[in-house]
Computed example of a mutant assay.
Amino acid sequence: MIDLENIFLAVKEITLETGAFIRNERKKFNVDKIEYKGLNNLVSYVDKKSEEMLVEALQTILPEAGFVTEEETINKHGEVYNWIVDPLDGTTNFIHGIPNYSISIALHENDQPVLGVVYEVNLDELFYSWKGEKAYLNGKVITVSANKTLGDSLLATGFPYYDFEKAEQYLQTFKELMQLTHGLRRIGSAAVDLAYVACGRFDGYFEYNLNAYDVAAGAYLVKQAGGTITNFSGGNEYINSREIIAGNGYTGNEILKIAQNHF
């Protein structure tokens, strides 16, 4: 049996080191250095180098583990353990100099999450938890909000940026929730959105067309902080379904009802 606390401490060290690299590169970053993986799907050398740094260190922490990574700098599947890594969640923000982007790292054991870390680089905020522990932000215990009314809630979401097939359903959901809540925010990093649900800053979150590396760590944090995670059908498969709704119990159920009216 692996020692998850010691593994976290090692993950924390490389996460903070990689975050420092990202911060330093942002100071001298030139937009001429961006590449396109697809329509509005941007990447930079910072994403790739950050992933290489993380992968190299994570391999030494747990050599038998495989990887699911955004930039696909490694091709390795583990029989029991797999890291799910987004080295720079919020690349578009990073490229444009908007200070909200993060590192997201999750560890799965037999396809079940056992550790999650989200590091918001600009505010130096490290959100984390592991199996058997509470959820934390920079050493302090966090929980989801206790808000039981959508009317008093602030929600987060993300806009589709290349797959617009469900754009109309999304806009109708957005419109209804916009009228029922304090508002909706789109800050540009799914991992941070979920971490903010975990610590109660947001009361709920919904988005579609996401990848496993966008949500694996943040969703685990929400659960460990007492929240709920479903897909748009109300099911438990959110890692690969490309749909996610997070909430504090009440808010998640209310968002789910509205989403199901439109999707």
Results as ranks from 00 to 15, higher is better:
1 M>I: 04
1 M>S: 15
9 L>Y: 10
9 L>Q: 12
10 A>M: 12
13 E>A: 13
14 I>N: 00
22 I>A: 04
23 R>S: 13
25 E>W: 02
28 K>Y: 05
29 F>A: 07
35 E>V: 09
36 Y>S: 14
48 K>T: 12
49 K>C: 11
49 K>Q: 14
51 E>A: 00
51 E>F: 02
52 E>S: 06
55 V>D: 05
55 V>P: 00
56 E>K: 09
57 A>N: 06
62 L>S: 12
62 L>W: 05
65 A>F: 02
66 G>Q: 03
67 F>P: 00
68 V>H: 04
69 T>S: 13
69 T>G: 03
72 E>I: 06
73 T>C: 07
74 I>D: 04
93 N>F: 03
96 H>E: 15
101 Y>F: 11
109 E>S: 12
110 N>K: 08
110 N>T: 14
112 Q>N: 13
113 P>M: 06
115 L>H: 10
115 L>Y: 11
116 G>H: 02
124 D>I: 06
125 E>C: 07
125 E>W: 03
132 G>D: 09
136 Y>L: 07
138 N>W: 12
140 K>Y: 15
145 S>N: 10
147 N>D: 04
147 N>L: 14
150 L>K: 03
155 L>H: 01
157 T>A: 04
158 G>V: 07
159 F>A: 09
159 F>Y: 07
161 Y>N: 09
163 D>N: 14
168 E>V: 01
169 Q>H: 08
171 L>M: 14
172 Q>I: 04
173 T>N: 04
179 Q>C: 10
179 Q>A: 13
181 T>Y: 02
190 A>I: 10
197 V>R: 00
201 R>T: 15
205 Y>R: 00
205 Y>H: 08
207 E>Y: 06
209 N>G: 11
209 N>V: 11
209 N>P: 05
214 D>C: 02
220 Y>W: 10
222 V>P: 00
224 Q>C: 08
225 A>D: 01
229 I>T: 09
234 G>K: 09
234 G>N: 09
235 G>D: 14
238 Y>D: 07
239 I>D: 06
241 S>F: 05
249 G>T: 02
250 Y>A: 15
256 L>M: 09
259 A>E: 04
261 N>M: 11
